[in-house]
Design a protein around this nucleic acid. Structure first.
Lengths: 188, 188
DNA sequence: GGATATTTACACAGGTCTGTGAAAGTCAAG
DNA sequence: CTTGACTTTCACAGACCTGTGTAAATATCC
């Protein structure tokens, strides 16, 4: 990893609740819009505890995105393990499933919109997106060996997915389902 | 339009400068990260003038996105007028050109990440994205009448473009150029 | 040049923001 | 029962935030 890994289990119970609450609020309302007082209050701890555990808001933001990546990635691999070929479509299914419970598009893109590019969390964003893209390309290369340019097809599908999921935050016009359908045709 | 149109020429010279400066700063650093004091100071006017002209920060934000849409759309139509078929590729060229001078992806997506969905500016964001998508589909329907499903192809290209441009803010890995290349192949 | 519109200057209100200090309280494990 | 890790309490600092009131100064237009 380009950044220090961060396991939830290193955290005390209170700290875990802080991270949960912060994740929900940061995603729902945006990072700048949510203050540490709010996060502490919603977590049922004092602001002092928040600072004792995370050090600063910026560090909490970074932890939020690291954790989001880890959880999401684990879910991805589990789903891929049980998916039937073409497994690239499982990617679309995961996003579609996410979209049923969360409604503001991609947490990483949203964070990128708010943070300065030299923020510690920005490295996590870059890492995550790159990892997803590469996993996609890898998958295509494995399962569609007959494709003349697996890398291009992988990126092609990746872009479809990114476009559709990002849009989900703005206006759902069935783009995720349509992207999946387009992908399905491309994989035949 | 779903929202009241807003012409720059209604504004005094000072107000135009405010809008210019606000546009630059909102895009570059994010909306919440930029205060009205900063905007006024950079514009060389007093904060009072800003409030006399725009009423509130929220109204200024809304005006920023309305104006961004109008300017961008005008540029789009001008470019389409002189473009050679397939003109859908001109879309990619416009985004690629934008990407040379601005480096934080799509202003509308970024704003959407920060604003509550009931913010007046959010309607502008929805309108803009929908308009772009529809213009794309329209263009395909005109120029690729042989396509069996012009709407799907239009959305397909739209998603490629959105995915690539959004990514440009995070990490430029030549995705815009690759998206154009993929689009070119799809249009043959 | 005189009426009208606009901008300045500047103080101020009332919040909210991140972050800290220091002492007292709580709880679990040895 | 004691040690040590964690959390609470609560006051406070200092900065930044949006937005306003008012009177004087300056443009702009007929």
């Amino acid at each position: 990893m380009e950044y220090e890994a961060a396991n939830i289990h290193d955290l005390t119970r209170g700290a875990q609740r802080i991270l949960e609450v912060a994740s929900k609020l940061f995603y729902e309302y945006g990072i700048h819009a949510v203050g540490v007082d709010t996060i502490a209050a919603e977590s049922g701890v004092t602001k002092r505890t928040l600072y004792n555990n995370f050090g600063s808001k910026d560090a909490l933001i970074t932890r939020y995105l690291k954790n989001r990546h880890l959880v999401w990635w684990q879910n991805l691999e589990e789903r891929l393990d049980i998916a039937e070929p073409p497994r690239a479509l499982a990617f679309f299914d995961i996003y579609a499933e996410d979209a049923r419970t969360i409604t503001r598009g991609c947490a990483f893109h949203n964070a990128a919109a708010e943070l300065p590019t030299d923020h510690p969390a920005y490295a996590v964003i870059r890492y995550h997106k790159r990892a997803v893209e590469e996993r996609f390309v890898e998958l295509i290369a494995e399962e569609q060996p007959a494709t003349k340019d697996p890398k291009r097809l992988g990126r092609h599908l990746f872009l479809l997915l990114e476009g559709a999921f990002t849009h989900h935050g703005i206006h759902d016009r069935g783009l995720l389902a349509e992207a999946r359908e387009i992908a399905r045709e491309l994989l035949i």
